[in-house]
Nucleic acid binder design. Sequence first.
DNA 1: ATTTGTGAACATGTTCACAGCT
DNA 2: AGCTGTGAACATGTTCACAAAT
Lengths: 181, 181
Amino acid sequence: MTTVSSQVLAERAGTTAAQVRKDLSLFGTFGTRGIGYAVPPLVNHLREILGLSRSWRVVLVGAGRIGSALFEYPTFRERGFHIISILDRDPGKIGRDWGGVRIQSVDEMEGVVQGTGVEIGLLAVPASEAQVVLDRLVGCGVRGVLNLAPVRLHAPEPVVVHDLDPTLELETLSFALRTRE
Amino acid sequence: MTTVSSQVLAERAGTTAAQVRKDLSLFGTFGTRGIGYAVPPLVNHLREILGLSRSWRVVLVGAGRIGSALFEYPTFRERGFHIISILDRDPGKIGRDWGGVRIQSVDEMEGVVQGTGVEIGLLAVPASEAQVVLDRLVGCGVRGVLNLAPVRLHAPEPVVVHDLDPTLELETLSFALRTRE
DNA sequence: ATTTGTGAACATGTTCACAGCT
DNA sequence: AGCTGTGAACATGTTCACAAAT
């Protein structure tokens, strides 16, 4: 059976072997001393830990460039994230079909989200509208949101919001470069 | 003069007042006891700390949907990140003009990057090509790269690479939701 | 011989709580 | 009275180094 050592995993992930072993040991003992980690069971364990052993229903709000790029990420579906609904406010886009998913009006959010049991939202709307849309999503029972708009959003516990802001990342990069020149 | 307290800053940033004060105190003493932080000088200090008091020349590689969305982020320019060059490999795009910046062939990377003193690269190419393009950028003397392709890239010290991967973020979100249900 | 799993040592990050200014 | 700046206490995260397992 194919195995992999903490050393190799560390190199791939950009960390240390000790770190990999400590992290894994926190969730159980998956390796064999002298051998390493058998890959297929390790993958299964990690999928279980990360909550990827089930599939998630996802609603994409915003069918602009960022939304469409996200929609075509093959890795979403591979990891069990299924975009089962797309919402936009542009009448020119509503009704279109993207690979079997029809774009609906944001006005239909409540019905769509509650009717399909969506738990995760992908927010790809303009920054100025992001908080309002988030609030509505939370009102519909969405439990987690990945926000692509360049604003920091807030939602009440226990809703989880992650902001993915390229500007913020550039500033972090700028700081890193500034301190090493 | 308008001031702001560590308390208010903490609420905005989603952290605690003590944390804000500790963090700021690491770089100097910017506040006034009994009053708070005077906003304009604080902003200046932060810009200085983050390396935003200067402007950065940026090259955008990849003029697809993600690239074009990035290009139009108004916040980039506002924070001093100037995309002065766009590269793509698609002959149908080369030669086009985006708001005063002409799209050039990736083949011209060496000349463009070295000729203009670009220090930061924005990578918006397909995942399969990202590492190769990164290596070339590093070869041209780029010091920092923000990678939007869904792969983890590596570059030798002291080059700084940040990966911005929506799939990875969704998995983190999944983990957060998994552990609280 | 090799590689895990893990206490113990070390390092870093966060919160507390209060003296010191305004 | 109000709010910062900061040591000290506490918590969390990382590395070391080695016994245990194959």
